[in-house]
């Protein structure tokens, strides 16, 4: 049994990829918050308050009555209901240098994703990952629900 637990533990680790080290790129802000929403950054958990900065690699988690709305620097708008967990895995918005890319991941919960300028300028460079599938966007409003179990 202990072996099975260890096996499970490591496979879960391998699948979630662990924390993103060295990530400090400014991605956007949490604009609106209700009840408890936390930001996990390099192993530290912060309370999300309105206008708190969001960095690349941050994991945003809403509590059982929490919800939050984010604005990314390219005008992408992400809002999440209760018991939701998401991260911005990658965010590059430098139109001058043609560096454009956005990868968001939804672990579970209900999320509304309204794409911004990256999707307009580089239609194939915006993806949302979920545990079961990957979504490619071309400038649009996507609603995603991922079961917890």
């Amino acid at each position: 049994m202990r072996f099975l637990c260890l096996l499970l533990f490591f496979s879960v680790l391998a699948k979630t990829g662990g924390p993103a080290y060295g990530a400090a790129e400014h991605v956007g802000i949490v604009k609106s918050v209700v009840a408890v929403v936390t930001i996990e950054r390099s192993g530290v958990s912060l309370n999300a308050e309105p206008n708190i900065k969001v960095l690349e690699g941050d994991v945003i988690q809403s509590g059982s009555t929490g919800k939050a709305g984010l604005i990314l620097d390219d005008d992408t708008i992400i809002s999440m209901g209760s018991n939701s967990r998401i991260t911005i895995k990658k965010f590059m918005f430098q139109p001058n240098e043609k560096k454009l890319s956005l990868i968001a991941k939804i672990f579970h919960g209900t999320v509304s994703f309204l794409s911004g300028q990256i999707a307009k300028l580089a239609p194939n460079m915006v993806t949302i990952e979920t545990p079961a599938a990957t979504i490619g966007l071309r400038g649009t409003h996507v609603l995603v629900q991922v079961d917890r179990e």
Partner: peptide
Amino acid sequence: LVCGCSGRKTLVALAPDPDGKTGSIVIGN
């Protein structure tokens, strides 16, 4: 884990943009 398939059930829907237009999405695995 053994059969290589994993992940939680996911629902993906497309809604119109605020300007009324509808874009497109591709969902794959």
